[in-house]
Design a protein around this nucleic acid. Sequence first.
RNA 1: GGUCCCAUCGUCUAGAGGCCCAGGACGUAGCCCUCUCAAGGCUAAGACACGGGUUCGAAUCCCGUUGGGACCGCCA
Length: 474
Amino acid sequence: MIRGAEEVRVRFAPSPTGHLHIGGARTAFYNWLYARHHKGTFILRIEDTDRTRSTEEYINAIIEGMKWLGLDWDEGPYRQTDRFDVYKSYADKLLAEGKAYFCYCSPEELEQRRQEALAQGKTLKYDGRCRNRDKGQGKNAAVRFKMPQEGETVVHDLIRGRIVFENAQLDDLIIIRSDGTPTYNFTVVADDVDMNITHVIRGDDHLNNTPKQIHIYAALGYEIPLFAHLPMILGADKARLSKRHGATSVTAYKEMGYLPDALVNYLVRLGWSHGDQEVFTRDELIQYFSFENIGKSAAVFNPEKFLWLNSHYIMNSASEKLAELVIPFLITQGIIGKSQSLNKEWLSKAITPLKERSKTLTELANSLRYYIADDVEYNEKAKAKFLNEGSRDILFELKDKLMVVRDFSAEEIEKVFRAIIEKHNVKLGNLAQPVRVAITGSTESPGIFEVLEIMGKEKTLKRLEKAINTIGVS
RNA sequence: GGUCCCAUCGUCUAGAGGCCCAGGACGUAGCCCUCUCAAGGCUAAGACACGGGUUCGAAUCCCGUUGGGACCGCCA
């Protein structure tokens, strides 16, 4: 059978030594998209063989991150620490077939030789001194894989094409440590073989490992999977994206008020394109996704464009949905109490004019503050400019007229405003701005009639009165 | 140092030899709309890293230079 002709089986294989990184999230998403596009299987595999750095907490964080992004998997999560017997049997097989050998060099010796090689400007490569020694018992010995030393290995990459490596460059890498635990380059291959993986989609930091892994697949008698090495995500300084570039974990963006769909959309466009289209639904992504449209060069993560996309998604989300999503942010910002509940219908109505003014859920929560709080807090500059002698009388008149309005709707409120400005022959701004400050505390808000309606008659009158008193005192 | 990868506006990208004196998006600036702030609309500035080929013709193909990145662990 030709590789690629059978059912697609792909995997995302993070190591739980940190939160789900946005680079990892993108890799996961491309795998997921490829599987969904081809109606294949997407497998989640936790590569936790480094027991000193892997934690349960990070495993959970990664799983939570995947769920939040809506990346559902069909098999797993498998854990490599549960599969040591698999690796051992594969290693024993290689040993028995003479494709691997015991190495008795100590880590200290190896390190010393590495330093010497480095000092002499030589290639850093195991010298193969245990290759032909007597097998021995393998006590306290590591197991090395016997790489071919001549010829070349060709990687056929779905994104980069044909890449040729000289076998003389390949290192006899350790597949089992002297303590009996397997190493990464071996577990990946063993698992891919065992799980019948057809396509390996991963970051291009693994490109140089690929020729070595190809020989291990072959030694295990497995058909070589197809590879797709994704370009890296860089920070603004063009260095690989890391903590020092600011937030890099999926969780961090969740907490800052970003929407999962926005993150996914932003990440997928970083390195992939479909003509000029910028915004995609998930179904469109599944339909359009293909390796042909993945770029080869690394991409710089651009927070501004991501912010824009997020605001776009917020603007286009249903208010009812945002009303649900914003609650945790209202709580963390102390705008409502932990057990306090709000009228969902009212909240949605308040959100509608706010969503095109909020780039994140955090901002949305914050702009809801003046509606929910008992009292207004004036912005000092706004207060000085609009709440003064010049506006007292007109505010008083407005309050007076508003008091008798039965149907406190934007429409009716506007009629009152229009009547007043017409009478005094002033522009709407002359009335609207003082009112805005009186009601919201600042000079920026949605349309004033709408704000008053959402605020409600009682609060509106109370705040107008407070403003008038404030002027009176000053 | 060795090996490998990459190279279009500040950033993400379109571009598969003529459709490109290079298109879209973010950001920036200006204008319009307007009760403020947004949103929206319009406009502007802004790129094929460099040098050689190949070709009637190159952003697109080839070679080199330069620049960036990744990997070279008993980490993953």
